[in-house]
């Protein structure tokens, strides 16, 4: 059996999510190759070659893949994937965009956001916002899978010495083009890979008050997240959203501040190792999943917490 893992990267470097997907691929017991599709992506390719347990790194380095346009990348992956039993990617925004297109081109189902590999054809995945875990068995000879990264440990980023092989295939569907992007620049760790996450909800009252979280985040080396309510209210941008339709996180420590705990939010953070909730409403559902709950006004508690850390 053979598995092709689709790398998540920014051309210059490999994103950690790729390492979680490699671990899921290892659980399927197949030989693993990694595809790095991008432009000027040698940095990412070299990093992929160093990942432990990888046979070969395929590099498709061409301007048509620079911005990961799904129309182009899916054609490439479908072509290369013809030679593999499994095509696996971490469930990032890029892979969510591209992989179903790959599956349809190959006329197979996609199995989205698996959380465990039961056997070569059977997987577990959350449905209904994580209120139910389904075990699904695939009848397809070729499997297209995305991996919930929080459910698999990262493979070792060092220790491998895979061969790097250039792929010449150039697929330009010619129907889409990149116009621009607004990417948040932050010195803080990425939300999905941070060891500590502190999130604010509607209780923060406005975007300005998220500054109260920043001092604590600095002291704890934490990423800052938000509930959908806070994002919808315009307090903070959407890429900070934790939940069913936002980012899924599972840090060592998750601190929920002014978040009531709607099931859609819990779906994004309830696998965190330790959960702290700070909320002035003692009946808030967030306290039902919190290891440590503090019933307090966040505007008093946060400055005190920061001061005493």
């Amino acid at each position: 059996m053979s598995t092709l893992v689709i790398a998540e990267h920014d051309n210059g470097s490999l994103k950690g999510a790729t390492l979680n997907a490699v671990t899921a691929a290892q659980a399927m017991g197949a030989d693993i190759d990694i595809l790095v599709a991008g432009a000027g992506c040698d940095g990412a390719a070299q990093a992929a070659a160093a990942v432990a347990g990888v046979n070969k790194v395929l590099v498709a380095d061409n301007a048509v893949y620079e911005h990961q346009l799904a129309e182009n990348v899916s054609l490439l992956v479908a072509e290369l994937g013809a030679g593999y039993d499994n095509i696996i990617a971490p469930a990032t925004a890029n892979a969510k965009n591209t992989m179903p297109r790959v599956a349809a081109l190959l006329d197979v189902a996609q199995i989205s956001e698996i959380t465990s590999v039961e056997s070569a054809d059977t997987f577990k995945r959350p449905i209904y916002a994580g209120n139910v875990i389904a075990t699904v068995k695939s009848a397809d000879a070729k499997k297209v899978i995305t991996v919930r990264t929080t459910a698999f440990d990262a493979a070792a980023a060092e220790g491998g010495s895979a061969a790097v092989e250039a792929v010449d295939a150039v697929h330009d569907a010619g129907i889409s083009s990149f116009v621009g992007e607004e990417v948040a620049v932050s010195d803080r760790p990425e939300l999905t890979s941070a060891a500590v996450v502190i999130s604010g909800g509607r209780g923060m009252q406005n975007g300005e008050n998220f500054k109260l979280l920043e001092g604590i985040a600095d002291k704890l080396g934490a990423a800052i997240g938000a509930s959908r309510a806070a994002v919808d209210a315009g307090f903070v941008p959407n890429d900070m959203q934790v939940g069913q339709t936002g980012k899924i996180v599972a840090p060592d420590l998750y601190i929920a501040v002014g978040i009531s705990g709607a099931i859609q939010h819990l779906a994004g953070m309830k696998d965190s190792k330790v959960i702290v909730a700070i909320n002035k409403d003692e009946d808030a559902p967030i306290f039902q999943v919190a290891d440590y709950g503090l019933v307090a006004d966040l505007f008093d508690a946060l400055p005190e917490f920061e001061g005493k850390l």
Binding site: A109, T122, A134, S138, K270, Q288, Y292
Partner: peptide
Amino acid sequence: HLTQVSVEPPAERQAGIKV
């Protein structure tokens, strides 16, 4: 293409303590 073999509830998280 897919068969749902079974469904189960997720691992329940126990409520902790109030500090």
